[in-house]
Design a protein around this nucleic acid. Sequence first.
RNA 1: CGGGGAUUGGCGCAAUUGGCUAGCGUGCAUGGUUUGGGACCAUGAGGUUGCAGGUUCGACUCCUGUAUCCCCGACCA
Length: 473
Amino acid sequence: MAKKFIKLKSEDLSQWYNDLVVKAELADYSPVKGCMVIRPYGYSIWEKIHDFMDPFIKEKGVQNAYFPLFIPESFLKKEKEHVEGFAPELAVVTHGGGQKLTENLIVRPTSETIMYEMYKKWTQSWRDLPVMMNQWCNVVRWEQRTYLFLRTSEFLWQEGHCAHATDAENQEMIQWALNLYKKTYNDLLAIYGITGVKSNSEKFAGAGKTYCIEALMPNGKALQAGTSHDLSQNFAKSFDWSVQDQNGQKLYPYQNSWGMSTRSIGGLIMVHGDDNGLVFPPQVAPIQVVVIPIPGHTKAKTLAEKIFVDLKTKYRCQIDDLEGETAGFKFNKWEMKGVPVRIEIGDREADANSLVLLRRDTLEKQTISVSELDSVLNKLLVDIQNSLLEKHKKFTQDNTFTVDSYDEFKKVMSTTRGFVSAHWCESSECEAEIKQDTKATTRCLPDGQPEENGVCVYCGKPSKHRWLFAQSY
RNA sequence: CGGGGAUUGGCGCAAUUGGCUAGCGUGCAUGGUUUGGGACCAUGAGGUUGCAGGUUCGACUCCUGUAUCCCCGACCA
């Protein structure tokens, strides 16, 4: 029963993950350290994420644009915290055209500085606000330890950057972006994420506040799945960017930036995959339905083709009628590729005008008549999507532990891991000590977490909130 | 960046103290028989052993450097 073609997820998660990413042809290693080639099957996932999010971004009035890959070193230095945060992971261009450059160029780790320098040029009046732009692009962060999709030196993302006349508008936008990520994870990727606000030590370099969505992975580690930053007026002031308000006074725009990356694909693979390979939720699956006529069955082939022609007008559908592979081989192949629904048709089905449906998430088979296909399939795809989300939600809840003592905290982190909900006094010293002991950091103060009087799980000083802790990817 | 492991046909591995023409499985190609959970037979193609040096009569094997990957740390918007 157990497949020997990839390592079992249950036995060795990271080996399973690495094997699967390569064998399912999502991505491959490149000759450059920490970089990956995203192959067509993997890239089509990114396209689905793009296609899901982009209309929402546009509908909000945010326009797509493109800013350069190279940023003058001096730009990055304008915001002190920003450059300090990013300095250790920058790729720097020192030569061009065979000559040493008079000023080094940074390969963008994120585009705040170059975008805001341009925003400054384009705006003079409060009437020019808000400025709302987004770009789909690549960024480079020279990470010391990398994993396919989850942390690569170069990755793809979208980064939205808006500037507003009032802080109220700014806050509204920040929450809008966070909700977009939550929606994308929930509705498209069927991943249950926890939204909240970051602690001071975990926030984006240069931000006033960072809001995030965190998702729990099967090994009990948390993945920072998307962030929305309240930049306040920090960057505007550092760049001396002001416009005139209605009263002729200087107005420093309130800014926000928000990003979600190809890391999400890593989360998608981890969360849903099983010992047989990938499991994609139907909404994001590059192929939603695969039709397999049992090889050698002639009557089956005709029916399969008829069904395929019909289905491909409604779903992302593929037929696998290549000769020379046995049925079992095809089943395993498409299971590894994570296709949500498989239709099997042999002569037996052809005679009865029926077909066999298999859902990838549970591997349950059912035989139905051809006339029922439309309604059953429609319902099945919705059901798979929903149950994958429910499953991950349940997993997250089952692995969120409310603790009131540091011993319990340490016990969780040394055994099952997962989220720990614990009181914390919000001092960075306690946070650092806890990290030292347990490798866990604060992930966020979850949205909707009620205020309650308690004492810090580490130092015993008064605390107002339970924060969410976890070891992070 | 520190510690450990690895790199040999596409993939997974072997090759004794440094010694003969670098093997095996799988995959690939061709032909045939098959095909309801990774079929079988036959024939065949595919390698300057990651890269660069060095030691040696002789290097997959030893030494130095270097690149990439994996694991464990440190780091990580």
